[in-house]
């Protein structure tokens, strides 16, 4: 139906009902998220197949490598442009970790930097037209969020023993309220990985899907200027969202890590 829509219908003939209908779109807005093998025409995806998702994940790794390793290879006291950006990224995440988790958190800086660089590179690379965005997939973000959740939970118990449970027992609240608060805190604790992963994937997916929807409207001559303008505006917003979501993911990781290091509020 999707490709057919383009060929069987004159775009100018499309009525508002048709435009609002799925059939009015030249392509399906969710097609861009399909994971398919990068080499060859097959659709079969085995666990080891090199897919478009794989390619873009590794492009993100390469981008990280280029920025942080090649960019800083000059080791100049007066930095070049690339080195400035690398130092800026380093300082940005380092300061975040230090501000939120304190001195003890600095030990976990490389883990957090890994998350940040991977997400920010994947998000930005995904903004290239026809690119694939790994972070728009729940498979990816759920793994990232679960990794943070499990690390933080295990770390909390290792560092504080059962004292970690005081995170759920709000000592400052009246005694009668504490069991209820404990249940709420417990639920919110377990919702963390869910919201953590869905926030990132949802934001990225929503932006890309909306751009695709507007791109579909661009085929209709009457509203195509509006739609092109809307795509431009959405693209600008998406650039912002790409960075902010990486930042939010990282900063929430820091907050969770702080809870594990200092569970007593």
């Amino acid at each position: 139906m999707r490709p057919k829509g383009a060929t069987t219908k004159e775009p100018e003939m499309a009525t508002p009902q048709d435009a609002g209908d799925e059939g009015g779109l030249v392509f399906h807005p969710m097609d861009q998220f399909i994971v398919k093998p990068f080499f060859g025409d097959g659709t079969e995806v085995a666990w080891y197949t090199v897919t478009n998702a794989t390619v873009w994940m590794f492009l993100a790794v390469i981008a990280t490598f280029l920025l942080l390793v090649i960019g800083s290879s000059g080791r100049a006291t007066v930095p070049s442009r690339m080195q400035s950006v690398a130092e800026l990224a380093y300082g940005f995440v380092y300061k975040m970790v230090e501000d939120i988790c304190g001195k003890e958190g600095v030990k976990y800086f490389p883990y957090i930097m890994t998350l940040f660089m991977f997400i920010v590179c994947a998000n930005f690379l995904g903004l290239i037209p026809t690119a694939f965005t790994p972070t728009s997939h729940f498979a990816v973000t759920v793994v990232l969020a679960l990794a943070v959740f499990l690390t933080v939970t295990i770390l909390g118990f290792v560092k504080n023993g059962t004292g970690f449970l005081s995170l759920f027992w709000v000592a400052s609240a009246p005694l009668a309220l504490r069991p209820i608060l404990a249940i709420i805190e417990l639920i919110s604790y377990f919702v963390r990985p869910v919201s953590h992963s869905i926030r990132l994937a949802g934001n990225v997916m929503a932006g890309h899907a909306v751009i695709k929807v507007f791109a579909g409207f661009a085929a209709i001559a009457v509203i195509s200027p509006v739609s092109v303008l809307a795509i431009t505006a959405m693209y600008g917003l998406e650039v912002l969202v790409s960075f902010i979501q990486a930042y939010v993911f990282t900063i929430l990781t820091c907050v969770y890590l702080k809870d594990a290091l200092h569970p007593h509020h």
Binding site: I244, V248, V255
Partner: peptide, 8 residues
């Protein structure tokens, strides 16, 4: 930072 966490 608090602002962004709240927005998130």
């Amino acid at each position: 930072a608090t602002l962004f966490i709240g927005i998130a």
